[in-house]
Write a protein that binds this DNA or RNA. Structure first.
Lengths: 340, 340
DNA sequence: CTGAAAGCGCTTACAG
DNA sequence: CTGAAAGCGCTTACAG
């Protein structure tokens, strides 16, 4: 087997024309059973496998989906990638993966590289809000989780989900809350913050006022740790009783800062995340967070891509609140003697 | 631009033959400067980009590397994937990614799928020791981290690295150690265990004897937590003073078990991992572990793949010990009053 | 140094 | 229902 057999070899072996072989391969056109048999026999006798490249050239259709993520090392993106791969596989497609390392140029060049390979479609988890990419519809493009250019976005309903956290914390009695926001140049960062803030504002109007501090950071561990450290190195009375973070990684960083500062979570401080990465359930205490429906998101993105014609509208999928050990009732500092 | 321009369009625009265009594209053959200019001008005027598929069909060479990992959601594999992607990019190649979900059949079918796409080469992080794949050299295949079939393996020198941990723990005075091994059907699992055990045995002969318990598990969090829980729910005197795990994830699971059982790490128990995933530096306490040189591993794997002829021998790369807070001196239980 | 032509392995109208 | 033939967009001997 020094050379792979081609459709021509199969045709000769079976004593038919290549067209006929092609037809039984596609299964579309009707072929007389006798010939069909012969062809099938030839195929397995020779161990023939169609040349995907040739097929792609001829039909200018491939079965690969390109995915670009900011950083595959980020657990949430890894989860997303895994889900996209699975969804693609279910639809008989393969995955090409590229990391943009949060670099806009890399992101663009990866998209172009995918275009050059005439992939079936491209899903991009943008590194930051992309601006005017001069890309018209040769190949469908869908934004996942974070908007890329002006392409349709499939994402968690960040605002709705963030409001869930606000409800939770308010319900627990917290009236001094810090929110660690994500980068304001990401739609997810903005929407989560806005959802959270506007819910808290609403409480201010209809219930008890809440003192809300907002700090900005990146979505990673280090940012969360750093911001939380600043927030928490104040005397107890001036400290927030709850920190809501825009990502699990930030929240886990915050947890670490709290531990370093010997602040008991959840007794003295509640901490919440966003994403429900698998780690969230493993840290101590386990993290209260928002579950992003990675699987559903991925599946929808792939569907939109593959639809004929490709989906064109945004889709928002609700997140759900996962209550675990890192959040608890506010330690009512007004009662004397209960203070730290 | 409803249709992508082809090499033919460029040729017409520049007033030359397609052969000439192809030659300036490849940069190999000599082309008279005047024509070269014209062609370049035409290319940018039309926004021409070569059709990768056609080129692949013609040359039967592509610039994509296939990577199959057991689970992209596992932080170490994610790191490996990121490194492979980077290394591939540096060599002008793209990455196709597939997850085997630790399923041998899926693994095989992904390899075949890559073969069908006539990728330039395939790197596989095996889910378990693959056996006789009937794959001869159409396309180079390299095993990374865990051996696939009988293909050349690039991996950390697991035995050497595990011995480093043994040295560390022994040096700290631990004489009752538990080792949480990885699955014995993985080469990495076996070699790490063997490296660890034989080093401890050596101590037994040349120094003080060490009581060594060995438990088996998968490489994941849950396994580590479960095994450690069993190990640690014994009275303090019968407990190991150190747990060496075959992966960071196991170790982090063990950390969690220790915390649940209120066993102070590192005061009463030392815990070590293997991999140095980014999380290792974020758990509390930070995890002492072995750094696997993911970047070097990936780069070597890609190099072997791309060499002409492809590399054929195994390569072992030394790991390094990273000492952090989860390991410390043994709490000499022999001194009365110091006991728990 | 350059053009005309063959061919990579398929699919798909076009006749019959 | 089936075969002969064109053509997808390239690269590369082959002449000149």
């Amino acid at each position: 087997m020094s050379k792979m057999p081609t459709i021509k070899d199969v045709a000769e072996y079976a004593g038919v024309s290549v067209g006929t072989v092609s037809r039984v391969l596609s299964g579309e056109a009707a072929v007389k059973p006798v010939l069909r048999e012969k062809v099938s026999a030839a195929i397995s006798a020779l161990g023939y496998r169609p040349n995907v490249t040739a097929r792609a050239l001829r039909t200018s259709k491939t079965d690969v989906i390109g995915l670009v993520v900011p950083d595959i090392t980020n657990p949430f993106f890894a989860q997303l990638a895994a889900s996209v791969e699975r969804a693609a596989l279910e639809c008989g497609h393969s995955l090409m993966l590229a990391s943009s390392h949060d670099d806009r140029e890399a992101e663009q060049s990866h998209v172009f590289a995918f275009l050059d390979r005439s992939v079936r479609g491209i899903i991009v988890v943008a590194s930051s809000d992309g601006s005017g990419l001069p890309l018209e519809g040769a190949v469908p493009i869908i934004s996942l989780d974070r908007r890329f250019g002006s392409f349709p976005l499939v994402s968690t309903n960040h605002a709705q989900a963030a409001a869930l956290i606000a409800d939770h914390l308010y319900g627990l009695g917290h009236r001094h809350i810090a929110y660690i926001a994500g980068p304001p140049d990401t739609e997810a960062g903005r929407m989560r913050k806005e959802g959270f803030v506007s819910r808290i504002d609403l409480f201010g109007k209809t219930g008890e006022a809440v003192e809300l501090e907002i700090a900005y950071g990146k979505f990673d561990y280090e940012s969360g740790e750093k911001v939380a450290r600043d927030l928490l190195s104040r005397p107890p009375q001036g400290r927030p009783t709850a920190i809501a973070a825009a990502s699990d990684q930030q929240a886990i960083g915050a947890l670490r800062a709290a531990r370093d500062l010997k602040i008991d979570v959840p007794r003295k401080l509640s901490v919440t995340g966003f994403d429900d990465i698998s780690l969230a359930n493993l840290v101590v205490p386990r993290l209260t967070t928002i579950r992003q429906p990675a699987d559903t998101l991925a599946r929808r993105a792939v569907s939109l891509l593959l639809e004929e014609p490709p989906g064109t509208g945004d889709e928002m999928i609700d997140g759900s609140l996962i209550v675990r050990g890192s959040s608890g009732p506010c330690a009512q500092p007004r009662v004397a003697g209960h203070k730290n």
